[in-house]
Nucleic acid binder design. Structure first.
Lengths: 224, 224
DNA sequence: CGAAACCGGAGATCCTTCCTCCGCTTTGGT
DNA sequence: ACCAAAGCGGAGGAAGGATCTCCGGTTTCG
């Protein structure tokens, strides 16, 4: 209960303790990626070849473990967005952004749950979203200015479309992990500016609305 | 323990019993539609203004209640597909099919869970799927023959696309229940046969694979 | 070598959800 | 009007999970 990883570093851990800490982190990373954030810490402990007690001695609770892990992961998402801006062709940049971030979600179920909910680590995730947003806006605007992306698409549509595609992945990953690419190709064709665009019916989500959608821990319980 | 609704009709229920049975059915219909199939029978009972015992006396278990309810609903889905075939313009027919079935899912969360899983009422659902399949195939083929729908789209893609769009609904329904229409419009544009179609990368799902995907069970995330 | 740090994992605690049980009430045939 | 059969409510048992604690025994390292 004393040695929280919150404090910078109070004192080096004993050798065995440090080794176990690392094992736990590795096991958790793998498990959360494979099964999502709802994997139990007991399972993490088992995979790490360690007792549950050891996990709880090192991390105050599940939240803390998740937090420690996803600091790294979340940065990667931001990097993908930035890389997309660096691609010369505006449309290719947009495509790369979708492909890149979706491929990440494919390999990491937990990441999806983190990004599309405020249930866990609200602050860290919110920060990351705030960092990504301007970059994505730039990617979108660039593609629209180049006349490649239909102009009636809003920035707030992007996360919604991604959410949509991760859903396909979630269902199909175990059966045929690549079908989401079919859907992506189709969606991208729909995003392309070509003569015959059906007008996008209701107005796009506002920023706060998007926030609310993402915050959706899903399955609200109490009415009244 | 004697009067199971399994037997066709052994003897009319007492007046109060029949009244309660109806109340239970109504409450369950509403609750499952609003919250999905995971609503508890205790909640159904509460909503019906009845004790849990009464529910269990009338329906062997949750499964039986769901079964009794969705016999009606599932037929509606089939009807929508058939109505789509009746529309003169092939493309409009396809569009109507998407709009109609998706709108249904919007108003009934439980229905989505029933259709996209084999967890509940496997037989009845499977039957319905078998009835819908040829109709959908016809709708698709007609639109392709008319040169309106891109030819590299497979029948098995349709449920996947629907699944994808229901996911959007699931997340956005509480915030802005109509944004899914934006996504649908975009997806439909992507399905349209126009000059610049990006080839659909991996081959479409086979029938058994689709079956496996639908069987997935899956309640996306744990709440909390 | 011995004290402080650490370990394992059984199991206490706390949820939920499904369903049963039984004492009391209502119905409807005579 | 009566009363047996049918029905009713809802407390609470059973089962399943997840989170986290506790403590006797082991390891590390000065």
């Amino acid at each position: 209960m004393a040695t929280l990883p919150t404090a910078p570093d109070e004192r080096p851990l004993r050798k065995d303790a440090e080794r176990n800490r690392q094992r736990i982190l590795d096991a958790a990373r793998a498990l959360f990626a494979e099964e999502g954030l709802h994997a139990t810490l007991d399972a993490v402990a088992a995979r790490a070849g360690v007792g549950v007690g050891t996990v709880y001695r090192r991390f105050a609770d599940k939240e803390a473990l998740i937090d420690a892990l996803f600091e790294e992961r979340i940065d990667e998402v931001v990097e993908i967005a930035e890389a997309a801006l660096a691609v010369e062709d505006p449309w290719d940049g947009l495509r790369h952004f979708f492909e890149g971030s979706l491929a990440m979600h494919l390999h990491d179920r937990g990441l999806k749950e983190l990004v599309f909910s405020t249930a866990h680590g609200r602050d860290r995730v919110r920060d990351a979203r705030d960092r990504i947003k301007p970059v994505v806006m730039a990617v979108v605007k660039r593609a629209q200015d180049a006349g490649e992306l239909r102009p009636d698409l809003d920035t707030t549509d992007i996360p919604v479309l991604q959410l949509m595609l991760t859903a396909v992945m979630e269902y199909t990953a175990d059966v045929e992990p690549d079908v989401w690419r079919r859907c992506l190709a189709l969606v991208l064709d729909g995003m392309r500016a070509n003569g015959a665009c059906t007008p996008l019916a209701p107005p796009a989500l506002g920023d706060e609305q998007l926030e609310a959608v993402m915050a959706h821990g899903l399955h609200p319980a109490p009415r009244r």
